[in-house]
Each structure stands twice: as C-alpha cells, then as structure tokens.
Design a protein around this nucleic acid. Structure first.
Lengths: 215, 215, 215, 215
DNA sequence: AATGAATGAGGCTTCATTCAT
DNA sequence: GATGAATGAAGCCTCATTCAT
C-alpha cells in the first residue's frame, strides 16, 4: 500500500525529467545550429552555452565533446532536409524533373533557412563528401536518367560532380548575395542541358519545379 | 681615406641583407604553404617556424600577424596559378577552348601540386568568394563566348556558378580520391555542352585542352 | 475513528523511514570505503553515488560534504578495528603479548580486509597523526610494560615511534607485496627484542600471538 | 670577415640563454619544493608559477606535466640527501655505526631542512617504496651486518621494515612536533638493540653518530 | 527522502605575441 | 635581423554543490 504511490511518483518524476531533458537537448541543438551558422567551426563551448542560455557545464551534460554536438546539428539538418526532400521528390517521376527538384530544393531550403544553409556549409568540412554508397540522391537520379535514356550517355561520376558542385556554389551564392534572384533556375536549366535535355525544355522543367516548390 | 671603402661596405652589406631577407621570406611562405596544406587553419606559429627552420620570433620579423603570412601564401598561390594560366590561355582563342583550358588547368594544377591545392581549399575559408569585379576569368570568358555567339544565350552569372562550382568540386575530388582518373575531362565536356556546344565537339575540345596542358 | 489507525500508521511509517535511512547510510559508507580504497582522495561524489547505487543528490542528504563522508568512513574503520582489537587484547595480559597482539592484529586486519587497509592508508593523509591523548594503544601498552619491568627502561615515546612506524610500514608492505608472507612475525619479534625481551622468547611470543589471531 | 663576429654573437647568445634557462629551471624546482612541502600533491600549476614568480605558461616551457616537475623535485632531494649521506657514511665502517648514521642523518636532514622533509613525505606517494634492487641503503647495511655477525641472524627484510618504518615515523614526528628533542637518538638505540647490539652500546653508538653529524 | 539537471568555480593547457639580448 | 624565454588571454574540462520536482 505504500509502494504504489511511490512507484507512481517515481514514474511521473522520471517522465518529467525525461521531458525536461529532451527540451534542453533540443534547445542546445537549436542554439548550436545558429552559432555554427555564424561562427563556423571556430565556435567555442562558451558560445554554445550562451546561445542556449545555459551554463557551460550543462553543455557537457548533454554532449561529451564539441564534435558530438556538431554531429547532432548535422543530423538534425540532414533529417530536416531529408523530410522536405522526400515530399518534394514524391511528386515527380521524370528523372529530369527529379534532378531539377533536388537541385532547386536544396538551394531554396538554404535560402529560406539561412541558418541551416550556413551551418551545412561550415559542417561540410567535418564529414566531407557525399555518402559513397548508392544513397547519394544525385548519383541515384543521374544513374537512372542515363539508364532510361532520359539523359545522354554521360559519365555519371562526372555528372554528379557537375551537378553537386553547381548546387553547392548556388547555395553559397544565395547565402552571400543580398538579393539572390532567379539565377538558380537558370543554373538548374544549365545542368539539365548538359545532360542532353533541349535547352528550352530544360528551362521549362526547372521553372516548373521552382513553381511547385514555391507552393 | 676611409669614406670610399665604408660606403662600398655599407652598400654591399645592405644589398646582402636585402637578398638574405628575400630568401628567408620566401622560405617562410614555402614552409607555411606546406604546413597549411597539412594542418589547415589549425596550424600554429610554432609549426610555421619549425617548418621554415627558423625561430618563432623570426616569423614576426617578416609577418606582423599570422593572417598576414597566410595572406602571403594565398597571394603566392594566386600568382603561381595566374602565371601558368596566362601561358596556357595564350595558346587558344576560341572561347570554348579557353573555358576548357581554364577549367582543366585549375584541376591539373591542384593535382600536380597537391600542397597548393589543399592550401587553397583551406584558405578559401579565410577570404571566400571570387573577385566580384570583371577580373574573374570565368566571367570574362563566358561573357565573351555568349557575346560572340560561340555559346548559346545563357545567363552569364548562372553559367559562372555552374562552371566554377563544378571545377571546385572536381578539384576537391581530385585531391581526395586516391586515383583521380579521367573524369575531369568529362566534367569539362559537360560544362561546354551545357553552353550549347554539341556534346561530341565539347568532348573533343576538352580532350584537346587536356592534351595541350599535359605537354 | 480515524485517530488511532493514523497514529499507528505514522509511527510505523516513521520507524520504517528510520530503518531505511540507516540502511542507506550504511550502504553509502560501505561503498565509499571501497571507492576510497580504489581511487584514494581522487574519488568523486559521482563515484560514491554510483558505488552505492543512489543518485548524486542522495549523498548530500546524508553527508553535507565529501569530507563528512570520508570522516564517517574513517570512524567506521576505527570502530571496526577497535572491536576486533578489543576481543584480541582481552585474551592476553602480558605486556609483551599485548604488544605482539596489537601489532600483528593491525597488519592481519589490513591483510584480510585490503579495502579497509588501503582506505586507511589513503585517509591517513586527511587526519594524520595519532590521538595525542593517552588513548593510543601503543603508548598505553609500552608505558605499562616499562612500569612493570617487563620491558627495559626505554623512552616510551621513542618506543612508540619504533613500533608504530614498523607496523605502519609492515601494513604498507603487506598491501603492496603480492605474497606478504611471514615477515610480519619477524618484525614483531624485532620490536619486542628492542625492548629487552630475549630474542628467542620474543619470537615465540610473536608466533603465539599470530597463531591466536589466525584462529 | 663577417661570419666570425656573427658566430661569436650567436655562441655568446646561446650560452647566455642556456644560463638563463638553467636559472629559471632551478628557480622553478626550488619553488616547487616549497609548494609541495606546504600543499602536498594538491598543489596546482598556479601555485608553482606564483611561488617561482613566473607566469603560468612558463612552467609548461620547462615541464610538460606536473608529474615531470614533481619528479625533478624528487630527484633534487634524492641527490641532495645522497651527497650528504655519502660524506657521513664515509666516516664509519662498523655496520652498527653505519645504520645509526643512516637513520640519524635522514631525520636530521629533515629537521634541518623541513621543506625537503615535508616534500619527501608528500612525494613518497608518487614513487612509493624503496628501490627494489640492492641500492637501498638499509638493505645493504643490514645484510652486511648480519653476514659479518655484527647483528644477530635476523630476517633482513623484516629488519628493513622495522628500521625504515621507524625512521619514517621519526621524521614525521620531528616535522610535526614543535620541539623535536632527543627522542631520535633513543629510536636509533632501539633499532640497534633489536638487532642484538647490547642496549648500552647501542645507545653509545647512536649518541656518537649524532655527535658526529652535529659537527 | 530521492532524484538528477543545472551551475560555475577552479584547474589545465595551448599558443599568439612581446621583448631583452 | 635572429633568437627564444616569458607572458597571459582564451579555451577546455571536471566536479562539488544547489535546488526544483
């Protein structure tokens, strides 16, 4: 007769603690994202703590090392991007449209959420390169497009370098330039054109993808 | 009776000093380049001094601050690239060939001199972005090619993003990958193709440029 | 109608609480003893809590500060030693036998309970020195032995230094050495011999005491 | 004609630097000795730096870790003790006199140089125990004394524990007690008596050794 | 009572920079 | 000019302690 209430209390308390813990953790990651966007890898523990409004020691209660915190930030961005990307790609099936959607989404995402964009650019250095397995979306789309004859028979590795490089630089530009403008659509059209899609059609596809993403 | 010899001595001594000074300065920059290539921005003054075989204080006699030394390294690379590039570009006049030469040269340079390549990638972070004025070689070549009708009527800014982004990523690939391979030429062909150059011709131009640079 | 049962409940509850409190306290001291034996003064509150299987805060509910906990550990060891020592000493009355029993008991205790031994050595540093009053058992036995003529007329203070120092080092040796061996009995014989007990008799007394303690 | 003066300058400068370096190093060790004597192993880098009158960073220029500094202190004490001990032991040859000299010297040294004495007691913890090889002076003297029949046939290991333990405690006493007094000589007499030296002779030898050391 | 999240003082270490020789 | 000893600011990390639940 005594055990029961105690157990309930303990459970409730534990649940409470768990909730608070999650909340602080999320706050730390949010804050770290903003800090990394601003200062890049030169950010200090002090910066992270201050941005999250907690004491320095608290950061260590959640992340043993700075690398762990940055890793959480990167995963957070990847998940965020991944979700949006999944939705966007689900609406198209033509490889050309897919490639346009992928490219434009990445730039638009960075444009709309500059913190995430900057953080991603800075963190790139920590885990450079793409996933080497087939998981890289550029690789997948390009390989399929070439296989299905939608694109001309190009070297997929080279095409990935072209597309990923162009998108990365477009993101950089979008974040740096005060008024980014419509250049991104043109870049996307150029990518498609390089793969054999007739220029006019390439531009149309890019514009269509842009319109769809803007919705 | 004493004047003349003293004058001579002073002049000779000054000249000597000047020569030694230049030599030490060059040694410092060379060493710093290698160090930055290896350790990136985490390099310390101690590293620079040790690599150059001088005492720590000596570095300060030539560069008031670390940033100045790094700046000298960057200028040194830019000058080095610029010279080679000037020679390479002087041999062609077709905008398509020029663009191919520019792109391939940059990658080949990084490949042949990985220290310079890595150092450039690391230093990029310090002074990101290109020269915004007309001095950017990509801009110049692209603008002329469009104006002369050699390329189709694309947005030059977008084309620059495509070409520069692709080249940057190709460099990164070349430095990271154990065996870089021939992909670079394909990338170059894709760039030209995106600008309206027929794929077969684009590839031929890229290969020709590669051959010329290999000589 | 409610009074009586409530009173009973309260009393029972209070008694229960008291029991649990004692139990937790004892667990804390036990755990702390083991921790100190292992890590010495470098032990942290976290270590103590973990070893006792409670949360960090709980330790503070019982001991306002770490020093208090360590003090409890020391008192616990002293009480433990005191009890065993009382029993052992009750069996003899000859000062020489008493001294042998005291010395051997202290070493044997440390040997049989290395945790207590190590903890004592580590804690020594916190409250160094012996009880200065007459409570020191070495002092008491030596003074009586000299007064009764069992020992020759030595400086009691000096004899205490000899005996206590020798015993302390024997303990250290016993804890450090992988196989301690029979040296302890010899040390004890030497102590007695220094006090005028004929060597053969001294050794016999020491061996007899050792046998008694082993039972 | 230019080289020579430069070389000379360099050599002179290097010699100068070397001298300054030695001086600072010695200052650091001296200061550390005093600090360790006072605070034991709880001493911080800050303490060492402050005591030596240098900045914190300077300590690191000389000793990579605190352990290294403490090691230097210990070696410094060992060397100091060793020298004095060598002189003192050179004056006697009788094993009993040797043992008395060794014991009394160690206590007297600590008494006359309390900093060294305290530091040694505190540092003992770092490199506990004696040199296990034959280098331990207690071992050497005891073994010879037994072999030559000067001492009775005791277990040398046990005798070492007795003598070393007694001396250690005598040192502790001498450092703790406000007025140490003559007890040390008595302790020494007891040690010899335990080894079979007749009490009167033992005391005479101890007193003689004390007189010799006081000179 | 028990819990454990949060705190922040305190100690460690590195390294850019200064400066006397 | 070159040297390298000395400096101290700045960041890192640990851990005793507090306190709301």
């Amino acid at each position: 007769m005594k055990r029961a209430p105690i157990k309930v209390n303990l459970a409730a308390r534990a649940a409470n603690a768990e909730i608070r813990r999650r909340r602080t953790r999320a706050r730390l990651i949010d804050a770290a994202l903003a800090v990394v966007a601003d200062k890049g890898l030169a950010a200090t523990i002090e910066d992270f703590a201050a941005a999250a409004g907690v004491a320095r020691g608290t950061v260590y209660n959640y992340f043993p090392t700075v690398a762990d915190l940055l890793d959480a930030v990167r995963r957070r961005i990847l998940r965020d991007v991944g979700e949006g990307l999944g939705v966007a790609l689900a609406q198209v099936s033509d490889p050309a449209a897919e490639l346009a959607t992928l490219s434009l989404f990445l730039v638009a995402y960075s444009q709309r959420q500059p913190l995430q964009g900057w953080a991603a650019l800075h963190l790139e250095r920590l885990q450079p390169g793409r996933r080497t397995d087939g998981a890289d979306p550029f690789d997948r789309i390009l390989a399929r497009g070439v296989a299905e004859g939608r694109f001309r028979a190009v070297d997929v590795g080279a095409a990935r370098i072209l597309a990923a490089g162009a998108v990365r630089m477009a993101i950089h530009d979008a974040l740096t330039r005060p008024a980014p403008g419509e250049q991104v659509v043109s870049v996307c059209g150029l990518i498609l054109a390089s793969l054999g899609v007739p220029p006019a059609e390439a531009l149309a596809i890019a514009e269509s993808a842009a319109r769809r993403l803007a919705a």
